[in-house]
């Protein structure tokens, strides 16, 4: 495939679709576990989004290169081996450079292996498309995933702890002097679900073709 056809309009849709119409979290229902668990603060969410970006786009390319050689009966195991090898790399890099964040993410780095976004995209896209397109699909889907992660983490950190990326925004703005209190509920697990639920509500209210029947 030549260079310019890779960036043709049709291929750009691969990048832009997952951001809204075909978002992995709110529409395809993939990769939810990690999206909910590590969104208490922005920093781990950003690190997680970047890790998924690396793993998903590289795994997409590798599987797409091997797509004609993988027997379909054992494809899941092949996927898992490719993903697990990449995740081990990411995990070691995180431990070496951002140890505190890696501790905070605890088992969730390992759980990128079973993050269904990756398996889902490998199965649905990389097995049927050439490497260039698969790479764009990987990028697009991890951006879509990252955006949701960052939006949820933004609200949870701001309302729950009054900080953004560790910086005490509300305190600097003097909101506490007006009698505002942090909403401790936002930090607890259930509010992550409600936040994502409201996000889905807002997205579907804007984009009516996504509405489900029951």
């Amino acid at each position: 495939m030549s260079k310019d056809s890779l960036f043709a309009k049709k291929n750009m849709k691969l990048l832009s679709d997952p951001l809204d119409d075909n978002n992995p979290i709110t529409v395809q229902v993939l990769g939810i576990c990690s999206a909910l668990a590590i969104t208490v603060q922005l920093k781990p969410a950003v690190v997680m989004a970047l890790s998924v970006l690396v793993v998903l786009s590289v795994a997409n390319v590798i599987v797409s290169l091997m797509r004609n050689m993988i027997p379909s009966r054992i494809r899941i195991i092949v996927f898992l081996v490719v993903i697990a090898a990449l995740v081990i790399l990411v995990d070691q890099v995180l431990k070496a450079f951002v140890y505190d964040v890696s501790k905070e993410l605890s088992v969730f780095v390992g759980l990128i292996i079973t993050n269904c976004i990756i398996c889902g995209r490998l199965e649905a896209f990389a097995m049927a498309n050439p490497p260039g397109k698969a790479f764009l699909d990987g990028l697009g889907n991890s951006f879509g995933y990252g955006i949701i992660l960052i939006i949820v983490a933004f609200f949870r950190e701001l309302l729950g702890a009054g900080t953004l990326y560790g910086y005490p925004v509300l305190e600097k703005l003097g909101v506490y002097d007006l009698g505002y209190e942090n909403n401790g509920m936002m930090i607890l697990p259930p509010m992550a679900l409600v936040t994502v639920g409201v996000l889905i509500w807002w997205q579907r209210a804007r984009n009516e073709k996504l509405i489900e029947n029951n």
Partner: peptide, 23 residues
């Protein structure tokens, strides 16, 4: 249920409520 909340959205919110109960 409000149309935009049907299906996935309301399931999330109910799960959140169940989570509060389990807390």
């Amino acid at each position: 249920v409000p149309p935009a909340l049907r299906g996935l959205g309301i399931t999330y919110i109910i799960t959140g409520l169940m989570g509060i109960a389990f807390m």
